[in-house]
Write a protein that binds this DNA or RNA. Structure first.
Lengths: 148, 148
DNA sequence: ACGAGATAGGTTGCGCGCAATCCAATTGCG
DNA sequence: CGCAATTGGATTGCGCGCAACCTATCTCGT
């Protein structure tokens, strides 16, 4: 069954290519605000948390990114003025990541972004939901397996 | 409709997370052979071409990667002994990328890899095919739009 | 109260991705 | 033929992702 080793048959390549293609759609939009796509994901988490100011590892759990990725990324978001980082008073090991006024203000200006991107995929609303749920299931299956 | 700005609603995050999760499945398998996932993709193209020895830009067109990514990657594959690069005689600008004996030999040892990975997704064969086709459609829609 | 282990986050190093730039080879147009 | 424009590939720079390692802080058992 050597034919399985053919690029166009591989789900994995389709996933890899589609992920980069979608990032291509985001790039010019986010660029107007000086953001990268992973930085935008961090802001999405902060926006959805409201005033909770998650720690670095809570952000990491949500996005499945470690401190090696998040530390410098958050430093850049802080330099850009969207975020502030404060050592927790109760536990000096923790760093709480909160939105600045500028970071909160950005949310409204980003309101229509997901719909613009969704339109670019050419999929219907139902297809998008199905795709998202299948992908989420795959991700969770894989991570559940890794835990033992 | 401010609620669209919520992480778990975003297809794009599902795609990003699933792509990294699947790469996680590949990593330990490819690691046994000293390969990274993008290097494996390059080998997939070379295996499927047989004796054709595509140029760097043909590889790039297939994988949607540019010379900035491929040049150093191919240099590493050459150092590892899987690939050779030769300037084309007819057009000195072109570099043809061919498999070494070691690169060809690797193919057999990789035979069952796609099935192992497919199993890790927890999806049925039909779901995998549907997913792949949807993703391919998305990628092609996006790239068609970019061309004008 | 104290010392071993766990935990949180930062740093380093490396390999992508991608934009921007550069150079050499080729093409094409007058 | 001759020169401008194009093409193919390499290089540089930067921001992820991720592994490996480090330090500071906290927890918990005794």
């Amino acid at each position: 069954m050597t034919d399985d080793l053919v690029l166009r048959r591989q789900v994995c390549f389709a996933l890899y290519a589609a992920s980069r293609a979608l990032t291509d759609v985001y790039r010019p939009i986010l660029d107007e605000h000086g953001l990268t796509y992973p930085q935008y994901l961090v802001l999405l988490v902060l926006w959805e948390r409201g005033d909770e100011a998650p720690t670095v590892s809570e952000l990491g759990a949500r996005l499945r990114l470690d401190s090696g990725t998040l530390s410098p990324l958050l430093k850049r978001l802080e330099t850009a003025g969207f975020v502030d980082r404060t050592r927790s008073a109760r536990d000096e090991r923790r760093v709480e990541v909160g939105l600045t006024a500028q970071g909160r203000a950005l949310r409204e200006r980003m309101d229509e972004v997901p719909r613009r991107v969704a339109r670019a995929t050419g999929l219907t609303e139902a297809e998008l939901i199905g795709l998202r749920d299948t992908l989420t299931r795959v991700t969770e299956t894989i991570h559940r397996q890794k835990e033992q």
